[in-house]
């Protein structure tokens, strides 16, 4: 069981790396060699499926949920990025074939996460006692899904900013033809952050309920992760205000998206940086 899990994890890691290389080839080398696109597609699918399988195996092992520690959480993070991107591909690829090329940023990110996961590899079938409740399961799952969506959204925001800059400066690289248009990049950022926001709300609500049950209070301003998660919600909400209420679509809203991700990264590291009740969440 363990060996199988490790084997499939490495299968996912290798195929994610191979996919990255194919996307790099598609992206940087001129010419329209669809064979590399197809290969990237095939290996991309293998990556998604094998990552899902690793998560499923972890889940089966504990019987409760797949989160036993930092390794499993990072694998799930990688999976959530792949899942969100896959849904976008599914939704847009017919109308926007160029969306697939975004894989050139998605897959290296996944590879990076998986390498980080491997550095914290452990196999354990025991879930920390504090994390055994269903509410905590929903809490962690939605947190990681939020991160997956935010990561995808950030990548689209970066693409928007790069494309916008090139169009404004009138220095068009041939690579810009291969990425989605401003319109799509902007829309995809919006969608991805929208999904992220929903999960952030779920994560905060389940967190507050659990805090009420376990710690006897819903909210504590001295708990760094609670505060910074709220900050994350605020900044991403500001993104929607800037974009949809103030109609500052485009460059300014994309910068807001980047700012949001900075807060998200900060939130991720709060248990490592400060004394936190989320101490077991150091690797989550």
């Amino acid at each position: 069981m363990e060996k199988l899990e490790v084997f499939i994890f490495w299968l996912a890691l290798v195929s994610a790396s191979v996919t990255s290389l194919f996307y790099v080839r598609v992206f940087f080398v001129k010419g329209t060699e669809s064979i590399y696109h197809q290969l990237a597609n095939i290996f991309g699918s293998i990556t998604l499926l094998s990552t899902a399988l690793v998560v499923a195996l972890q889940w089966a092992r504990t019987g409760l949920h797949p989160f036993t520690g930092p390794f499993s959480a990072k694998v799930f993070y990688a999976f959530s990025i792949l899942l969100v991107f896959f849904l976008f591909e599914l939704k847009y690829s017919r109308r926007v074939p160029r969306i697939k090329t975004v894989g050139v940023l998605i897959y290296p990110t996944v590879v990076l996460l998986m390498l980080l996961a491997w550095s914290q590899f452990e196999v354990s079938s025991s879930i920390p006692p504090a994390l055994t409740s269903f509410r905590v399961f929903v809490h962690i799952t939605s947190a990681i899904l939020a991160y997956g969506s935010y990561t995808v959204g950030t990548i689209f925001a970066i693409i928007y900013l790069v494309q916008e800059r090139q169009l404004k400066q009138k220095k068009l690289q041939s690579t810009s033809q291969k990425l989605p248009s401003l319109e799509t990049a902007e829309l995809a950022t919006h969608r991805a952050l929208g999904i992220g926001l929903i999960f952030t709300v779920i994560l905060l609500l389940t967190g507050m309920f659990t805090a009420q049950m376990v710690w006897g209070r819903m909210w504590d301003w001295r708990e760094p992760r609670e505060v910074s998660a709220l900050m994350m919600l605020v900044v991403y909400s500001l993104y929607f205000i800037v974009r949809d209420v103030l109609s500052m679509r485009g460059r300014r809203s994309s910068y807001m998206a980047l700012l949001g991700f900075l807060v998200a990264i900060f939130t991720y590291f709060t248990p490592a940086l400060f004394l936190s009740l989320h101490a077991w969440g150091r690797g989550f």
């Binding site: 068009l172 989605p180 248009s181």
Partner: peptide
Amino acid sequence: VQLAKNVFES
């Protein structure tokens, strides 16, 4: 036209 397609998807 090509430039326009960098702004608008289609």
